[in-house]
Design a protein around this nucleic acid. Structure first.
Lengths: 122, 122
DNA sequence: ATGATAATAGTAATCATTACTATTAAGCCA
DNA sequence: TGGCTTAATAGTAATGATTACTATTATCAT
């Protein structure tokens, strides 16, 4: 595995932002530093960074995958009333798959409901 | 919202199997009953069944979405090695959002990792 | 049964992702 | 430092899931 300017720029970008980005968004951002970087290069590096556990990915109901340079786990709460998205820490109990002998490398937890603010205003 | 043969057949198929199917797999299965059903019809109905909460979906690192007619609370485990999707019970602790005074009406939990079988074969 | 119109079939378009290939540039070694 | 090996890249084409479009069909309230 070689450290290329392209790979470094992609990882650096993801680590500099606390947000999720699609491959195309990453492509557009990195192009400001490396104007002729190829979209295929972005995809290839994202795949290998994922495999190395340097970044994580989030699949949504959108048809594209989002990538995140912040590895520390957190869950999301989506308020069905005000549509706000909140972050919460992940609970730290041993998960059911782990109890069954599976190796869990990543998990995604999304809660749907009504947030405190919306609850109070009713 | 009208109850059509197509919509019923899709829902019936998903409820008859305790497994997860992609839109194309559902299309192939339902075509045995309704040979000239359109793939677009499958997608449209899956989207509305999802919105109504009659089915649930699982996003994987594959580029297609999987649908599930078994909606009682359970979590999913996606094996990154063999791509199989396993069901697990949901843990019953009080969730972090509930501790914070939020009302949780639904939650989706997906674990990613390597299943027991793949772990053993290495 | 009839009429309004939501849903469908069939097809074309979109768009994220992957595959392919000639060219470039990391990284090792003298 | 310069040359060599070859992994990685740029650019482009192909793939495949999903969505859009439109004339036609079939549901269902009256």
């Amino acid at each position: 595995m070689r450290v290329t300017r392209q790979r470094s720029a992609i990882l650096e970008f993801l680590r500099s932002k606390r947000h999720h980005y699609s491959a195309t968004q990453i492509y557009d951002a990195v192009r400001e530093k490396i104007p002729n970087i190829s979209l295929g290069t972005v995809y290839r590096n994202l795949a290998s960074l994922l495999e190395d556990g340097e970044i994580i990915s989030v699949e949504t109901s959108d048809k594209c995958v989002y990538y995140d340079g912040f590895i520390s786990g957190h869950s999301h709460f989506v308020c069905q009333c005000c549509k706000e998205i909140y972050d919460f820490p992940l609970e730290s109990t041993t998960s059911e798959p782990e109890k069954a002998g599976f190796t869990v490398s990543n998990q995604r937890v999304v809660y749907y409901g009504v947030c405190k603010m919306c609850n109070q205003s009713k």
